[in-house]
Design a protein around this nucleic acid. Structure first.
Length: 937
RNA sequence: GCCGGCGUGGCGGAACUGGCAGACGCGAUGGACUCAAAAUCCAUUGGGGCUCACACCUCGUGCAGGUUCGAUUCCUGUCGCCGGCACCA
């Protein structure tokens, strides 16, 4: 209830009125419109700063308070940088294609185009209400045809490129084709359509489909037959990164593996560069480590073992130095050797085992991982170093997707092989001796580095060599005899880019009757989604894209689809690709489009790209760590392709990355561990009680979720306190990077702070401006120090301590109630002006309102950052604690610039010091200037 | 199991590069104002001891050690929580 005397108090209603008014004003005046080079209003003299939030996916549920945390942080930095004379690019838009929108649409029966649009509208409305200084004129969504036209264009670029391993860069595939034709090169191509068998032919005698097959082996976006992750529940296949522990990342549904022909990205070609260039970026170590581990580089050797009646069986090993210890081999259940073995004696058992292992989902395979399983193939291989005959087994602990899908087993020096050998009674032979000379116990595999032993045959010996030396010698020996070679292997696999879904970007590609694929020409882009009344996933045990239902759209002609007539006569009947791109597609390059969002002739103009992205990419990128691998790896990959092809100027897209922590919430737990909704708990100190029963409940920290009824939305907080308070509270909670619990009770603290700010400038009874006549020295000192600290803290993204500094300034200036003449206290006009400029990045609306009360004109958002008099930051004298034997016993005042001798003299003259010394002379005096003194006796 | 991060008052958190632990806020307690309450303003607020009181003493940054004149900070071990990876040969 507002007190009648205080009609001009800063309360929720007034805050709301001020905020909405200024938001409209900013928008109408186009205050945050950012000019590109060459446009009117562009100031080339200023440095640039590109600050970016991770692309939000607007869900139907709207924002919760976790969303604005990162956005507030970037907004503060953006406002601060603008005040410091930077051209700031700070855009916002929508990642709007993808599975959740489609699932929601299927549930509700409303078309995803409609639900997505309304979700975007509510996100935009909610964000706008928080007063972020986005340049809304640059807004776009991934579903806009003018945007996904260029997503398709980039895909075509990858489709039309190959990776030149010599140049270590992407090049147009036309160059490769030309070269093959010119040299009339021998190429390895399929014997027949769809056949795994290969034949070596000259380019000139290859059939067109054989040529295409050869080129497909090199395209960066290619159609490949792969074992894919098929999720029947989601009705689509998923990328490796989207599968966690054999379950879909989204929804946690079971995933099966099955071979399928799908569009892939040859991201593996970039593995080494994706790894190396992590050194170029300023990213959290944890994220760099995650990417490093995901890429999973390991150096070793490829070794060929001859198999009787089959040919060579290649294995990858990181320990070629243990080759003499190989006592058996194992191939994955999916390995081609299985078919060969299954046709022989005992084939039924083998086929059965392989079939079972293959059909089991990854979850099952892991659940049984404690006990090793496997069957012998009845085949034998020859160890190339000692001609020993060793058995070949199949076991599901060997994965088809890594290396060659086969291993040499060295049970003495590999824990997995050791377990397997123990289980099946296979021989274990030590070929590495412990460095300290102790004997190997034989209880566990000995995988630590040591000296080779028992590794001699003929003229080859590794005995006595260290691991590195032994590896060097054995690899040289193998290479000389063409039995093996040095090899680097990566865990990273090619990126599966097809989804059997409706709500995604269509691929700009068509197929003729024979199954040859043809690109849609660039001039015919975008390929738009057909309007489909029934876009529900097709229930099937095979991946079946819903776009297949749009028969009219699917069955067309080359001319209608926009295929270049030189590739295919326009009347040729063709079918369109019915898979769509995954949700990641649009977020792989959105940061580039923001530089030049309205460009209709290029995806981004060279000039705008060079200006905003130079010299090292986006200057500050803030978003959640859940994207540490997926989005951030994919975007880096696209960026590198574009870089190779001369389309962008930087090697990396994001120079500096920062992850905000999660905002959690309190939940209340009964003694039996069940949870009570927050609304049904009495929060009295010190013991919280359940309202209904009065029983004691314990407060625990949990994620915000509907089931715990502890979700807080920005709308509620804005209604109760205003947007400035919400912004301030989110930043005051703690360090941006940490996860922190939302505590409704604490919000009052920052709200009261804003009320005090308001009271400093405004007479709550009259609404008139109220300022100090003359500056107070102590207030000025505190203000200067606060402003200095705020600037410094914003630079290091320490917003919580910056806010504490602002509060200290206000506390210093606050007028006691007893003060007779209000003009005796508070800030002067000049002090208030400086204070408001420092407050504005955090609480822009109240700052703007008070700014206009001061009659400062224009907008506080256009005002420069306040300067600080360096003299205000230093003291004439400093207090130094004096320790005696490491314990503080006295404090002395010394002149700020005092040298050690002078400090020592002052300290020894101090009465308290003398008393504690009790006549003893210090044996040592440690003086840390302006910090402390320690006397040892 | 492996890798990474974090453990500080009743609560959220602060502490630059090894230099006075607890900034700032919440909560709590007392006071001023008020008929009263709210709001506001002022003061106190880590534990223990001692004192009329100021002062002073002592313990204290998950736990146990170590390095150092001095450790929340560095090192070793250990416990707990969070995140990532998980048969990658």
């Amino acid at each position: 209830m507002a007190d009648e005397d205080f009609t001009h108090r800063y309360d929720a209603a007034l805050a709301g009125e001020i905020e909405v008014r200024w938001q409209r004003e900013w928008q109408e005046r186009g205050l945050f419109r950012t000019a590109n080079p060459g446009e009117p209003g562009f100031d080339a003299a200023k440095p640039k700063y590109y600050i970016l939030d991770m692309f939000p996916y607007p869900s139907g549920a709207g924002l919760h308070v976790g969303h604005p945390e990162g956005y507030t942080a970037t907004d503060i930095v953006a406002r601060y940088k603008a005040a410091n004379g930077f051209n700031v690019l700070h855009p916002m838009g929508w990642d709007a294609f993808g599975l959740p929108a489609e699932q929601y649409a299927v549930q509700t029966g409303v078309h995803p185009a409609v639900t997505t649009k309304s979700a975007i509208d509510s996100f935009r409305r909610q964000l706008a209400r928080l007063g972020f200084r986005y340049d809304w004129s640059r807004e776009f969504g991934t579903i806009d045809p003018e945007y996904f036209r260029w997503t398709q264009w980039i895909w075509l670029l990858a489709y039309s490129s190959h990776y030149d391993t010599e140049a270590q860069a992407a090049r147009p595939i036309a160059e490769l084709e030309e070269q093959l034709a010119k040299l009339d090169a021998e190429v390895l191509v399929p014997v027949a359509r769809g056949s795994a068998g290969r034949v070596s032919l000259r380019w000139s005698v290859c059939a067109p489909w054989q040529r295409q097959s050869k080129l497909d082996d090199h395209r960066l976006a290619y159609l490949g037959e792969q074992s894919v992750n098929w999720c029947p529940k989601l009705g689509t296949v998923l990328a490796n990164e989207e599968v966690i522990d054999g379950l879909s990342e989204r929804g946690g549904h079971p995933v099966l593996r099955m071979p399928l022909r799908q569009w892939m990205f040859r991201i593996t070609a970039y593995a080494q560069r994706l790894l190396d260039d992590l050194a170029l970026v300023d990213w959290p170590d944890s994220t760099r480590t995650m990417q490093t581990e995901w890429i999973g580089r390991s150096a070793g050797a490829l070794v060929k073992f001859a198999v009787e009646g089959f040919g060579d069986l290649s294995v990858f090993t990181t320990r070629p130095d243990t080759l003499f210890g190989a006592t058996y081999m194992v191939v994955a259940p999916e390995h081609p050797l299985i078919a060969h073995a299954a046709s022989g004696a005992g084939g039924a058992t083998i086929a059965e085992y392989a079939q079972r292992a293959r059909n089991r989902s990854d979850v099952d395979r892991q659940a049984e991982s404690k006990e090793k399983t496997g069957v012998p193939l009845g085949l034998f291989a020859t160890n190339p170093v000692n001609d020993e005959r060793i058995p070949i087994w199949t076991a599901d602990y060997v994965l088809m997707g890594y290396g060659t899908g086969a291993i040499m087993a060295v049970p003495a020096h590999d824990e997995r092989d050791f377990e397997f050998a123990k289980r099946f009674g296979l021989p274990i032979r030590q070929v590495v001796a412990c460095l300290d000379g102790s004997a190997w116990t034989g209880e566990h595999a000995m995988s630590e580095p040591g000296l080779a032993c028992g590794s001699s045959h003929g003229d080859l010996t590794l005995d006595g060599l260290t691991q590195d030396a032994a590896i060097a010698r054995i690899v040289a020996w193998l290479e000389q005899r063409r039995l093996g070679e040095r090899r680097v292997n990566f865990k990273l696999r090619d990126w599966l880019f097809s989804r059997q879904r409706y709500w995604g970007e269509p691929f700009p590609v068509v197929f003729d009757k024979a199954g040859m694929h043809y690109p849609v020409s660039i001039s015919a882009l975008p390929v738009e989604l057909p309007v489909l009344a029934d876009y529900a996933p097709v229930v099937s045990d095979r991946p079946t894209p819903p776009l297949g239902k749009a028969t009219q759209w699917v069955n067309t002609t080359a001319g209608a689809a926009g295929v270049d007539p030189s590739l295919l006569p326009p009347s040729t009947p063709v079918t369109r690709e019915t898979n769509t791109m995954p949700g990641w597609a649009g977020s792989c390059w959105y940061y580039l489009r923001y530089c030049d969002p309205k460009n209709s002739v290029r995806f981004v103009s060279k000039e705008a790209e060079a200006y905003w992205m130079g010299p090292k990419g986006v200057d500050l990128y803030i978003g959640g760590s859940e994207h540490a691998v997926l989005h951030l790896l994919y975007a880096r990959f696209w960026h590198k392709m574009l870089y190779d092809l001369g389309e962008v100027s930087t090697k990396e897209p994001f120079a500096k990355l920062f992850h905000q922590g999660m905002i959690t919430s309190f939940a209340y737990e009964r003694a039996d561990g069940s949870l009570v909704p927050a609304s049904e708990v009495d929060l009295a100190e010190p013991q919280c009680r359940e309202l209904a029963t009065g029983a004691c409940v314990t407060r625990v920290v949990a994620k915000m979720s509907k089931s715990l009824k502890n979700v807080v939305t920005p709308d509620e907080v804005v209604a109760e306190y205003g947007a400035d308070t919400l912004r301030l509270y989110e930043m005051a909670m703690g360090p941006l990077a940490e996860s922190k619990p939302w505590n409704t009770r604490d919000i009052a603290g920052v709200f009261r702070f804003l009320q005090r700010v308001w009271r400093l400038a405004i007479d709550e009874r009259t609404g008139g401006t109220l300022l100090a006549r003359a500056p107070n020295a102590a207030v000025e000192r505190q203000l200067s120090r606060s402003i200095h600290k705020v600037g410094h803290d914003i630079e290091r993204l320490a917003f919580n301590t910056a806010i504490a500094a602002l509060i200290e300034a206000v506390n210093a200036a606050t007028r006691p109630t007893q003060l007779k003449d209000p003009e005796d206290g508070g800030f002067t006009r000049d002090q208030m002006s400086r204070f408001l400029r420092a407050l504005a990045p955090f609480a822009p609306h109240i700052a703007e309102e008070l700014w206009s009360h001061l009659g400062e004109g224009a907008s506080v958002s256009l005002a420069p950052w306040p300067s600080v008099d360096p003299l205000q930051l230093v003291d004439d004298t400093v207090e130094m604690p004096v320790q005696i034997q490491g314990k503080v016993r006295a404090r002395v005042m010394v002149p700020a610039g005092a040298d050690r001798d002078e400090v020592e003299r002052i300290v020894l003259a101090d009465a308290a010091v003398q008393e504690h010394l009790a006549g003893r002379a210090p044996t040592k005096v440690i003086v840390v200037p302006a910090r402390m003194v320690n006397l040892l006796v």
